[in-house]
Design a protein around this nucleic acid. Sequence first.
DNA 1: GCTTCCCGCCAACCT
DNA 2: AGGTTGGCGGGAAGC
Length: 418
Amino acid sequence: MDAAAPAGPSTSSSAGPPAQPPPPSMALHPAAQGGGAGASAGVLKSCRHHAYSRKQKSLGLLCSNFVALYDREDVEAVGLDDAAKRLGVERRRIYDIVNVLESVGILVRRAKNRYAWLGFAGVPAALKELKERALKEASGSVASLPLEESSAANVSDDEDDDKLGDADEDEDVEKLSQSVDNLSDKPDASSCRLRSDHRKEKSLGLLTQNFVKLFLTMEVKTISLDEAARLLLGEGHAESNMRTKVRRLYDIANVLSSLNLIEKTHQADTRKPAFRWLGQPKRKLENTANIALPLDRKIIPNKRAFGTDLTNIDNKRGRMDSTIENKSKLLQGGTNIVKAFERQLGQGSRSDFVYGPFHPAGAKKQEIGNHTVREKERKTIQDWENLAVSFRPQYQNQGELNIPLPILLDISYKIVIM
DNA sequence: GCTTCCCGCCAACCT
DNA sequence: AGGTTGGCGGGAAGC
């Protein structure tokens, strides 16, 4: 499938993206052709002369659209094919999105090609678990290992029901972590498993979790992707290795920032961008204030505008983090992890997590796996619903979305309110 | 010229 | 064997 491709054997990537493939997410038109991307290839080609724009095809934007499409009360399952078709992108991209979303608890894989939609209500539990797992790692002997290795070596709380093949039922949020966590020290448990785990170790999902763990465990609030890559890889990394990792982190960061879990900022004294964890409602409020500008007045980030990339808007939102300060903090990070954790866990746990821009439709889906969302959280969620009214996602090509009318109306409504 | 990151090849992994 | 998943890195858009 992966529709677009063919036309020409397009040998390999070395040939480079030949004549711009039509930007599917732009070109595909709504209801018109529920008919499948492939079919429209010819038509799309005719649009080729339109300037090709990466922005309109960014993962972040795609993610926003994805969320807009499924973040509704009545959505429970997500089919990959369906998503790809409706969003007008190739399946491959959906995998990217879905893997990241799963890592933060928005989705859970149920079966081949099928995911369950938990929505933003699933985020707190997922983050909490991430935190706790990282805490265990930290307090264990693996604290000093790069995350990528340590997480592969750690054991998650209650696992080893070890699965495979069975029950679609309850491989919940933990699935990913389990499969990786189980790796454990048994040297060559089974070459099969190791090989499989090796692949998982590098998965986008796990990388996402580890990236998020950085924010949850480090004292610093912002981190550049270079730093993140370095921390995740450990020292002695090959240069190419590093580049690849950074590329993946860009992908992840774009998705996470479209979810508003992080935002792009700039390190004070470098032109290098960094990402800031959006963890406190307080900050969120400031966000809201910033965002609640009339559309045409809105300060457009000087860079990419996918998702809700607030990037350059803010500056004042937090204290200025100097790169140097960050670096030294990061270095201490390992030893401070436990302390930082205790502090974070102690300070009102996750009521301080902030969801994405959409009001948590899944607010009523209180049960995530076996975790029950508590009252307090529920309350917070309601607060966010209010926030959501003024917190408008920045869709850029919603017109091209294959989103059911009611949703579009709902979205537009929110935009108009602004 | 450097950063950002889309694209799609193709191998690993299922079924 | 055929379909699904997703790592990976080339290379072009964006700045």
